[in-house]
Design a protein around this nucleic acid. Structure first.
Length: 463
RNA sequence: UCCCCGAUAGCUCAGCUGGUAGAGCGAGUGGCUGUUAACCACUUUGUCGCAGGUUCGAGUCCUGCUCGGGGAGCCA
């Protein structure tokens, strides 16, 4: 079905259009080369990273003086296969209409710009080659996530954005309120009276959809969330954003070992999809961002992930004689340098580390028989360390209650969470994956602010 | 939040032991019969991040602040 009068450039460059066919294209001028008797316009319409070269054989007859970099134009003409240095097909212009002029103070001129500068003009940067590729890649990989789960009969669920709990330690919440911040209603004690707020209680933006996913998994079987997630942490790094997209599958009747197989499959599926279905984007990343990218992805697809317990990992690190900045001690969390040593130096492939000390993990993770460790898993990959974290959930009511008491949690507030353990409880497992993190890994892009169109970070919510 | 580095033309940067600012790119004008990071010639460009201080004199030295980058922590 063709809804539009215009022909898209990706259809032209990927050879879906016959030679000498008349076409109408519309797009933005990337660059132009004009001589007395011939002019060339490179047009990009956002459908592909490739520009269509438009050849103007009699420049005097066209409004070229109104066309600058960034202008939007409509061109009628015919296609022609050529032996060009950069292109195998180009377009001979017969009619050019300027849709929107772009004065020469347009900042996206024909030159390279740093990512730092482009962040300051996030409203225009999607028009650059790299950010165009990133945004199309993001779209394709979103589809890959859904495709993977839908093909396996997982149900896509929508966890609430506005919530009351913080999933116990997942992170600081952004407050949601309709109060006048200068004059909120107060109790006699002087404390703010949230019972008079919009929802009748304190609310915030979700830091994780996991708890709600557990509820739906215990009804629908296998489910996944894929939605925005918010953390009000004062994190200033290249891989943290205050608003990001997280993928959280949750499976009923599934133990940790079964889930680990799924995690490995999921990662390999996404990598394979990128190489096959986002070939243009991966080629761009490999050429322009990181020359090893495709090789790295291929090697991970072909590798068998290593499996090791936390306790074994500690032993490996202690025997390594590596000079770590942070000490290696059973009971302490693994630092980034430890994780990277395991996956890069020791195993030289992705590693699944399981059964962490319960003291350093969340209350909902299933306690092992030793009563010291829980059925948690972190998937570590070279270059970044942890990319996925998950666990088998504690399905035994008494054990979970005891664990929550140890953490001084208010059990009444989590009555609904305990109810699914009271009635027809089942073993279940789930994990979380930051979508931007996987996009960074796939693309080689080094900063999360360049992977999400309009990044929200501490001190920055522009556009 | 902590540690390190930085802020000079639209962009990327140079600017020595303090003496009032320069290049490349971009942009403009002209030229050029197939260019493709086009090419050639000429032209254009500044509250040196902000506020104090030292000095005869500060882009340069000192203090504070703001913003940006890298790393760490928190985490996905």
């Amino acid at each position: 079905m063709n809804y539009f009068e215009r022909t898209k450039i990706d259809d032209i460059v990927y050879d879906n259009i016959a030679d000498y066919q008349d076409v109408l294209v519309m797009g933005w001028v990337r660059t132009m080369r004009v001589t007395k008797n011939i002019a060339f316009i490179e047009l990009n319409d956002g459908s592909t990273v490739h520009n269509l070269q438009i050849v103007v054989l009699n420049p005097d007859e066209f409004p070229l003086d109104k066309i600058n970099n960034g202008a939007s134009i409509k061109v009628r003409g015919y296609l022609e296969k050529v032996e060009g240095r950069e292109q195998s097909i180009e377009m001979k212009a017969e009619e050019i209409e300027v849709v929107g002029e772009a004065p020469t103070d347009y900042v996206l001129q024909k030159k390279r710009h740093t990512f730092e500068f482009l962040r300051e003009i996030a409203h225009l940067r999607p028009r650059t080659s790299t950010l165009g590729v990133v945004n199309r890649f993001r779209s394709k990989m979103s589809y890959a996530v859904h495709k993977f789960f839908q093909e396996r009969n997982f149900h896509y669920i929508h966890a609430p954005i506005i919530t009351t709990g913080d999933a116990e330690g997942a992170g600081e919440m952004f407050r949601v309120t309709t109060f006048d911040p200068a004059d909120p209603p107060r109790r006699d004690s002087g404390k703010i009276d949230f019972s008079r707020d919009f929802f009748g209680q304190e609310t915030g933006l979700t830091v994780s959809g996991q708890l709600q996913a557990e509820l739906l998994a215990c009804a629908l079987g296998d489910v996944y969330t894929f939605g925005p997630t918010f953390r009000a942490e004062n994190s200033n790094t290249s891989r943290h954003a205050s608003e990001f997209w997280m993928i959280e599958p949750e499976m009923a009747f599934c133990d940790l070992d079964e889930m680990n197989v799924l995690i490995e499959d999921f990662i390999k599926y996404l990598f394979q999809f990128a190489l096959e279905e986002a070939e243009e984007e991966m080629k761009f990343f490999n050429d322009r961002i990181d020359e090893d990218r495709i090789e790295v992805l291929k090697s991970i697809i072909e590798s068998d992930f290593a499996h090791v317990s936390y306790t074994e990992a500690i032993d490996i690190l202690k025997e390594s004689e590596e000079d770590f900045e942070f000490p290696v001690e059973w009971g302490e969390d693994l630092q980034s340098e430890h994780e990277r040593y395991l996956t890069e130096q020791h195993f030289k492939r992705p590693v699944m580390v399981t059964d962490y000390p319960k003291k350093i993990k969340a209350f909902y993770m299933r306690v092992n028989e030793d009563d010291k460790t829980v059925r948690a898993v972190d998937c570590l990959v070279p270059e970044v360390g942890e990319i996925i974290g998950g666990s088998q959930r504690e399905e035994r009511l008494e054990v979970l209650e005891r664990r929550m008491q140890e953490e001084n949690m208010d059990l009444e507030k989590y009555d609904w969470f305990l109810d699914i353990r009271r009635y027809g409880t089942v073993p279940h497992s789930g994990f979380g994956l930051g979508f931007e993190r996987i996009l960074m890994y796939l693309s080689g892009m080094g900063n999360i602010r360049d992977i999400i169109p309009f990044p929200r970070t501490p001190g920055n919510a522009m556009f």
